[in-house]
């Protein structure tokens, strides 16, 4: 007896069609920690950007009478620093430089290191060996010492510090993007793309980049938290921003003497660095979890 099937089509799948990044954003929005970090970072960034508009005082004008005045002094909401300047104003203005010195090197390192890593991962062979072994050489130096050495050699000043930090951050990004590219490159769909006659650039642009962005971005975010600290650190030892520019690391240094008399005020720039760094770190964790679900 033959089985005669009725003419009915495939049962339609009734899922919603969301893109990958849309899904990531949705999951991120549901994570309270990530939302909190995003809000904090946005607030700090905005207050840094709009510092001239919202700061109550002039960051470079110090009143001798108000030196190291405690929190809550009239006019100086968060107290006065060792030269009598308003802490609140200097923290707001300091954010500008600290954030720039933290974020810009990561962005630059991502562009340069990412390109190098993808090239090494995709091409393989001799090119990969050159790129990766050069990267290894840089890895031989502890990052902080390397930053100090380069900044020291170039001298202080914003441009030099940015350069020093970028150079230090390129190797880890090369490694992460190379390893991600190598993994993706061996997947069947890349082979299928090659089998359709596509050249390397098309394959990288369409197939590789979209699939490595996830892990690379997560890593870049975690590097942001490190970069902020290193930038502040360089300023702390005098290789970053120059006084009297307000910058959190620099402020930590200049307030060192006040640590026994006004510990809260002396700690404040450190607290700011801590909050920003931690927020970037937690955000990178949140991003990673959001990307984990298939």
């Amino acid at each position: 007896m033959t089985f005669v099937p009725p003419a009915s089509p495939d049962i339609a799948v009734t899922f919603q069609s969301t893109g990958y990044w849309t899904g990531v954003m949705q999951r991120l929005k549901r994570d309270p920690v990530s939302i909190a970090c995003l809000i904090i970072l946005t607030l700090i960034t905005l207050s840094a950007v709009f510092a001239p508009l919202i700061a109550p005082n002039d960051p470079s004008v110090g009143k001798v009478m108000l030196r190291l005045k405690p929190i809550g002094t009239e006019g100086y909401l968060l107290g006065g620093d060792e030269l009598g300047r308003d802490m609140l104003t200097r923290l707001l203005y300091g954010g500008r430089l600290s954030l720039i010195m933290g974020v810009v090197p990561v962005v630059l390192a991502l562009l340069i290191g990412g390109t190098l890593g993808v090239t090494a991962g995709f091409t393989g062979g001799f090119v990969s060996v050159i790129i990766m072994r050069t990267t290894d050489v840089f890895f031989a130096f502890p990052s902080v010492l390397l930053a100090v050495a380069i900044a020291g050699a170039l001298g202080s000043g914003l441009g030099n510090t940015l350069l020093a930090l970028t150079v230090v951050l390129i190797p880890p990004l090369v490694r992460v993007s190379e390893s991600a590219t190598t993994q993706v490159r061996s997947l069947d769909f890349v082979e299928a793309a090659r089998a359709s006659g596509a050249g390397s650039f098309s394959i990288i642009r369409v197939h590789i980049l979209g699939n490595i962005m996830g892990p690379v971005l997560v890593y870049a975010f975690s590097l942001l938290s490190v970069s902020i600290i290193m930038a502040a650190g360089l300023s702390f030892i005098g290789l970053g921003a120059k006084p009297p520019t307000p910058e959190w690391g620099l402020m930590l240094n200049s307030l060192r003497g006040a640590i026994y008399s006004q510990p809260l005020i002396a700690a404040m720039p450190g607290v700011m660095i801590f909050i920003v760094s931690l927020s970037f770190n937690l955000l990178s964790d949140g991003l990673r979890s959001a990307m984990d679900v298939k």
């Binding site: 997947l187 769909f189 369409v206 197939h207 979209g210 699939n211």
Partner: peptide, 13 residues
């Protein structure tokens, strides 16, 4: 190819 899911880029429609 054999693996139907691995041969499609998960990020593309």
């Amino acid at each position: 190819f054999q693996d139907s899911s691995a041969s499609l880029n998960p990020r593309l429609t």
